[in-house]
Design a protein around this nucleic acid. Sequence first.
DNA 1: AGCACGCCGACT
DNA 2: GTCGGCGTGCTC
Length: 746
Amino acid sequence: VLNQPHLYAGVIVDIRISQVDRMFFYLVPESLRHEVKIGQQVVVPFGKRNVNGYIVELQEEDPDLEGIKSIHKICDTNPLFTLQDILVAKWMKERYLCPLVTAMQCFQPPGTVRKSLHLEKKVKMLQLILDPQQAIALGEQLKARAPRQYEGINRLLDAPGYSLLMSGLVKEIGYGSVKALIEKNWVLATQTTQRRIPQEGLKTSEADISSLTSAQIEALSQAEKVLDSSEVKSILLHGVTGSGKTEVYLRVIEAALKRGLDAIVLVPEISLTPQTVGRFQKRFGPQIAVLHSRLSQGERFDEWMRLKNGQARIAIGARSAVFAPLADLGLIIIDEEHEDSYKQDETPRYQAKEVAWQRLVQNNKGRLLMLGSATPSLESYYQARRGNLIYISMPERVEKRPMPANVIVDMRQELLEGNRSIFSRQLLAKLTEVVNNQEQAILFLNRRGFAQFLLCRSCGYIPRCPSCGVSYTYHQRPEYFLCHYCDRHQSMYAHCPECNSRFLRPFGMGTQKVEEEVARYFPNVKVLRMDKDTTTAKNSHQKILQAFSNKEADILIGTQMVAKGHDFPGVTLVGVLCADTALHFPDYRASEKTFQLLTQVSGRAGRGNIPGFVVIQTYSPSHYAIQAAGRYDYSSFAQRELNYRQRTKYPPFVEIARILITGEEEKVVINTANQLAISCQKGLKSDWQIIGPAPCPLSKLKNRFRWHILIKGDKHDINRVLSLGMETDFDMSVSVLYDVGATSLL
DNA sequence: AGCACGCCGACT
DNA sequence: GTCGGCGTGCTC
């Protein structure tokens, strides 16, 4: 007997702490040698106890370690992770600086993290071991005397690979007859684990192109070109609301399935309504698996398994569905790609768009990432302009419905002319009209500012930080301004520095206040309110929308949660009470968010037969984001905004990473922040920049002080700088977290 | 994360 | 004398 070398496994243990976030080597016992595979979950001895772990490497080379231990057991014979999953997870670790286990666990079935899994059920299979000719001959002899055994032979002859589930055949011909076949040694019974079920042929009608717009046809043909090529490419589908993007998605999925490729559709959680899902289910039936947080744990698990074993080939879900276990993944569609919800705000802090791309890159034969939006993120638009992704515009609504007409109302003028109400005269007139005609209206309040800013009601002036360009937040007692990016302070003004007026006022009104005002002007009108307070109960969100849809109310007052994912054919008027709240949010993307919001809001008006009307109230009527939104002019907005970002060095021209430091003692937190900033400084290239440390906009939360550092750097290199921070040691009482590609600064 | 080892205060 | 505090160090 040859002296066969031992086999060693590199294992990642399921302990989420940076000190054990590396491979540990184990000996594979001879008894498991033929069972062991990369991607399996295992139990290994670790220190004085047993822990779960995942095999990420197998090698025959002796790692030459003293006191190496052996793998204790393998959880499932079929690996939980593919090699590609592991490669994507490793990429996530590099990019987002998270422990490898947490990245890997994204690929696990929902609800199973930190558990020892046993997904496989053992199944007995029957295999015909005669050759077919012989089987037919012997079967004929049995026909008269043992018809059931004859039937069994025939079943096996018809089965793919001459093998069948034992349980199935027992049902057909009875246990006795099966046993007889086994005893004659004609049929072999084996214990196996359930395998991936072969893909069923897709029954799709030939695509009827005649009903598509020319833009839709163009999008489809570009997508097919990518799927037929050997490259991985992205398409940015820029289509105004109502231009028929969903129809394109459906056709592209069909095209992918036909080529043997599986698909993932990502949709923001808030748009994942029964209507949306229903449209996909109607087209693809049981081949769709829905991964929805509203499903029970068990239901989500079942949907995941249907994907893993090949029963379903299309996954639809929110952010985390990007990890859906599809064997031949060739298409990922990300709808409303500009939405912030594609960034996870807990570890691992991944951006689903990036993970999607990375998953597709792992395989190299005709793979497509399709990003869709009515208001693409500047990042995507910029990439399109540079030719890094294919840009397809769908500028027209189906059936050539016009975009709703709108008016931008200057609230400074209203004040000047003595109107101190929250409603402009125009909005009031339009509201009256709607009420009289028994139509419906939506009033938007934008998101409520968590931080106060100051607004000059005479001229619309907003104090801004001269070095970061974002609005100062206003602090009372004592009164001063603070930049939450760089910690710059500015003492309070007595008069507006622009127009010298005394109407500098902290800004913000609640939905409740709006409700009162509406009641004052329209005492007999039924009003629904939708905000944080009214939607905490489960499903209340859907209930309110449903009630409004059923015309149980005439006016709906809400924050931006109303703007998404619901059509109200009866709505003919949309009023944006104050566009400035979004515009002066202390965030470098405030203009972009405002443009997106106004565009989206306008899409809510006039989807039925009556043309809609939009009133936008603002103290900054000439701001380019508001002007461009009023004209539905994305490209001129994007051009201006890109110029601004380039000048001020914000994304997409740099990458922003954020380090958040929290702790109970403010002094320690600030010291640590300074220390980290100094460490990172060492890795900084000349045109890069460290901003801060500064207190977070939420500077104290749950009794912990919060400071952050922002780093502007290069996409491919910024984690190197952060690693310098990770290496420095600091007081144990603070916690430090790293967020690459940070958007939320709370 | 766990679970050791390790070196100083008040208890049967 | 010893029971036990949690500081720091390691886990293939």
